[in-house]
Design a protein around this nucleic acid. Structure first.
Length: 306
DNA sequence: AAGACGAAAGTGGTTGA
DNA sequence: TCAACAACTTTCGTCTT
């Protein structure tokens, strides 16, 4: 029962956070009401998947920008099939066939792994609504990790997840480990482990995340008003000045600040609701929130707004 | 009945000898 | 490499609305 501790994504039908990715069917399924959220409804991207496509529908492109999220950076050249060379001498045609064979062979080993990883990354990014820039960054990180042989001994998924986590943090829009774990058949701690490993090996600079990075995303998930959101930001700024935040988990602080803000503006949210979107427990919110109101002298304000 | 509160025990990561 | 440590989680009982 390893799925007990990690909450799934919110189900659009029944509203419970019990939607998980089913590796076998490659679909998202709500374990509570059984709703199947098919991949096609989320991912409108093109395929570009088969290298040696024999159906005669192979796509061409010209002058496209280089994209890390494509396994060949979008610029590789593919030698056509032998039948494309009908008007070439017989002897020469055989040579072409051999060249084609070799091209497919040399690219297959690492390329195939990379292709698989990048399509996995794309799937996850569309599921989690992650912007293209971060997806690109994650692709670069995965590519670097693959070149340094860091994938060895680890599952491909965990490295993809770790790269994505690192990329989102570097862009100042960190996803929580919980959120990322929802999209993979992986435990949160394994993603964290892989993340630390690859970022150390690749020498990525690890900036500790700040509560501010999370506030807007959490607030919008809770559908808070702009006033309440602004209040939460204000609380965090004050807290940082008074050094209430040092050494504490940034997500806990962000969650507590949001909770306090809802009390002040009367926009009721339960501790449970805030805890859910922030990926911390109610207990953590309580502890942070107690510190916040005593250190920032907010008791009176809260009482008067009740 | 639901939400808030707090105590106590356990977990995983960091740090420093 | 190991032990101490802080932050956080889980669990569970109690209080409040």
């Amino acid at each position: 029962m390893s799925s007990k501790s990690t909450k799934g994504r919110k189900c659009p039908v029944c509203g419970k956070r019990t939607v998980f990715y089913d590796k076998g069917s490659r679909e998202y399924i709500c374990k509570s009401c059984g709703t199947v959220i098919s991949e096609d409804t989320i991912d409108f991207g093109k395929e570009w998947r088969e290298f040696g496509d024999s159906s005669g529908t192979s796509r061409r492109r010209t002058g496209a920008p280089i994209e890390s999220s494509r396994h060949d950076l979008g610029v590789s050249t593919k030698i056509g099939r032998a039948s494309d060379y009908k008007n070439i001498q017989k002897g020469t045609r055989r040579i072409y066939s051999r060249i084609i064979k070799w091209q497919n062979r040399t690219s297959s080993a690492t390329e195939r792994n990379l292709k698989q990883a990048l399509s996995e990354l794309k799937r996850v990014c569309s599921f989690l609504d992650i912007p293209k820039t971060i997806q690109e960054e994650a692709s670069k990180i995965y590519r670097m990790a693959a070149e340094k042989q860091l994938v060895r001994g680890r599952s491909m998924e965990s490295v993809v997840a770790g790269a994505l986590y690192a990329a989102s943090r570097n862009y100042g829009l960190p996803r929580t480990l919980n959120e990322i774990a929802q999209a993979f058949p992986l435990e949160k701690k394994e993603i964290g482990k892989t993340y630390r490993f690859i970022s150390r090996q690749l020498g990525l600079r690890i900036i500790p995340t700040l509560p501010m990075d999370y506030v807007h995303r959490f607030a919008s998930e809770l559908k808070l008003s702009p006033e309440t959101t602004a209040k939460a930001v204000e609380i965090i700024k004050k807290a940082q000045n008074k050094e209430v935040t040092s050494g504490k988990g940034p997500m806990g602080i962000a969650a507590a600040a949001i909770y306090v803000a809802t009390l002040l503006t009367g926009e009721k949210k339960t501790q449970r609701e805030v805890a859910d979107v922030a990926g911390v427990t109610e207990v953590t919110i309580r502890n942070r929130y107690k510190e916040l109101i005593t250190k920032l002298n907010l008791e009176k304000q809260i009482k008067s707004s009740e």
